[in-house]
Nucleic acid binder design. Structure first.
Lengths: 108, 108
DNA sequence: ACTTACGGTTAGTAAAAACTAACCAAATAA
DNA sequence: TTATTTGGTTAGTTTTTACTAACCGTAAGT
């Protein structure tokens, strides 16, 4: 398939959502698009920190941004969220199946 | 509700799955229950590291263990995985809704 | 009893991640 | 033009995290 050197996958997005501040940012964006300063105003970290967190989220494709004048408005990319959800759903189904089929037969 | 001081939530489980080694362990366990040494044998980290990772996964309830003699067999707790999936699903739905309803009205 | 296999815990170290402060650039307002 | 707002970037520090090595306990085998 030869995807790029480090095309972000569901796993990378999971890591991005692992940080509590980034989760807070992400949940805010789930309510609707917001500017950087707006987000920073509601969190106990500096605007710079928020900007860096948004970069991480952006790198894995979970959010996109669009500049409106001097402001930068970020929004969630729902399709990427769905991918992470589906990744977990597959693991969940697999775990369910493998627990049912080999009950009490660890690693046979 | 007064849940304990640090009852693990979906968000905490997300953080636990943020580490690549833990994700590898978790995906192995999705195939079926395995012992600590067995897992360590297939990963480029020490048995001690695996033990510590399993502790993290165990603390957030994503896995459980059961000692069989001198071995300790870990398995996935599917219900907890489903909770994380549902957490993401709610965020996804919310994001979808809020993008549709207020198009081009950032933070109004 | 001794030995081996298995795994949790601790101490200490190394690596990664998050944060603030300072700076710079671009767009708007005056 | 000059000042203000907004936000990205960098440098440097602090904090957190992951890791190995060494140790200890327990269960089973001999």
């Amino acid at each position: 398939m030869s995807r790029g050197p480090s095309m972000p996958e569901a796993a990378d997005r999971m890591a991005a959502l692992g940080d509590p501040v980034r989760r807070a940012i992400f949940e805010m964006l789930a309510e609707g698009p917001r500017s950087v300063g707006d987000i920073a105003g509601k969190l106990p970290v500096s605007r710079s920190a928020v900007s860096q967190h948004l970069r991480v989220l952006s790198d894995v494709g979970l959010v996109t941004h669009e500049s409106a004048g001097t402001r930068n408005v970020y929004r969630i990319e729902p399709a990427r969220v769905a991918e992470v959800r589906d990744y977990l759903d597959r693991l969940w189904q697999k775990a369910l199946f493998n627990l049912k089929s080999r009950i009490e037969k660890p690693h046979q």
